[in-house]
Design a protein around this nucleic acid. Structure first.
Lengths: 244, 244
DNA sequence: CGTTTTTTTGAGCAGGATCAAGCAGCGTGG
DNA sequence: CCACGCTGCTTGATCCTGCTCAAAAAAACG
């Protein structure tokens, strides 16, 4: 499985050397030769806050890896109701293989940097390297697991449980060893409207439940987006209803 | 791509000859030789209504294809709240590759017949035949799309929109060319409790909204599980809020 | 048939939505 | 420097959809 035997850093294209996708992302499946080939066709792009990255009707000729920032995947109803159906962090893969167009809109939730490449390149790599398809397949299985976890949250949890679940999810992505820390501080990558659209709530309810958590002494709110978690285990207990 | 050139029915194992999985399911990726090899290790099993097929904590040593019936994938909260996160119909694949255990419970919603085989067999076939992994990957992408569609339903739709969405979904699985028929009759594969758990509602609300649709002259309810759809296009319009 | 399970219907309640006002931060221009 | 508008967030008052609790009706099953 490992491609790393007898490989020197000098074999890795410069543009890829500090990239997370090479380790945890799909590019980890590639040999230096394949990586070099791919890197000839990639372009790194920066996108500001709120910019649409993938639209549902437009034909998309690129796939991307998320290098930094957070991408939200949303669905719309004709009357404007909106639901966020997924969040993508570095080094997630962005795009819908084996389909002409996506049925979600991908939008930058924060400032975002992407590494994009033509669809055709990925498709030819996939035929050569089953490892690559394996990695993609596994990412999609993870996304499926996450989507189903979230369905439970959307369908069956109360407002405060939803908000706690959201905070736990964000913390687990931003700071993987959260458990160990007594007090941790995070910057929310989403504004209130986005949180509401992710949780199937209104802005007002999100705001109220946040003050609710503050009054319970579980969180402390700094500068709107800065949140200090004062009692992470209690937050988890609210999220999945395992209170004593 | 096609394995069907110069292949006679006599090359296909008898147990596979009438199986849907051989066409639309994952077995369609196999050559007759591979299919014969696989068929030596399969067993067809029947499961009655409400039987647990996969449990979350138990280690599962088999994968399966659904031959007939409907399987519900559910998630539980410690206090008993329950959410159905997916429905599997023939010839869907059942199981979670690349993981020790599943994080959903699979339960027979109706009587179900499965074609099961050891995990190891599938894994060895996958390494030989990239087509097989491709098929699996595509099914999982479909499930991901469906899960995300349903997240919009759970998070943002009203009770009557949810119920209409559910009926449309069931019809599309049971009767693919529903559009063409003036009036169609279907048998619901789920009881009220299951419908409620799929929609994030209570039994009572499901029941009330059903009578609501009946009063609107959109459906007619026969023998509890039998439903006659009198105005399919209106049902669709309610489901995705595209009413004039 | 009687018993149990499932579904429907009703009455009342409450969690979260809606509507509305106010506040805090922040960039812009005078 | 402050006045201004703009955007995003909070808080309050009221409303309504869907939940809870209760009971009856209808199926399912032996």
């Amino acid at each position: 499985m490992s491609n790393n035997l007898n490989i020197h850093n000098s074999d890795i294209p410069i543009v890829c050397q500090s990239c997370e996708a090479r380790h945890k992302g799909i590019c980890g499946a590639l040999t230096p030769v394949q990586l070099t080939e791919l890197s000839k066709h990639t372009s790194k792009t920066a996108h500001s806050h709120e910019q649409i990255l993938i639209d549902t009707d437009k034909h998309q000729e690129n796939y991307s890896n998320v290098l930094s920032g957070v991408v939200k995947l949303t669905k719309l109803m004709p009357d404007g109701r909106q639901q966020i159906v997924g969040l993508q962090f570095a080094p997630d893969f962005l795009g819908r293989p084996f389909a002409e167009d996506s049925n979600v809109i991908a939008e930058a939730a924060t400032n975002v940097r992407l590494c994009s490449f033509p669809k055709s390149i990925l498709e030819s790599i996939i035929t050569q390297s089953p490892d690559m398809e394996r990695r993609l397949h596994q990412q999609h299985l993870n996304e499926l697991d996450e989507a189903r976890d979230w369905m439970l949250t959307l369908g069956r949890k109360t407002a405060i449980e939803k908000l706690a679940s959201f905070l736990v999810l964000i913390i687990s992505h931003i700071d993987p060893e959260a458990e160990t820390q007594e007090i941790l501080s995070i910057e929310l990558p989403l504004k209130r409207k986005d949180i509401a659209d992710y949780l199937g709530l209104t802005i007002e309810t999100v705001s109220r439940q946040l003050t609710n958590l503050r009054k319970k002494n579980i969180v402390e709110i700094g500068d709107k987006k800065m949140i200090k978690i004062k009692d992470y285990s209690k937050l988890q207990m609210i999220a999945d209803n395992t209170l004593g």
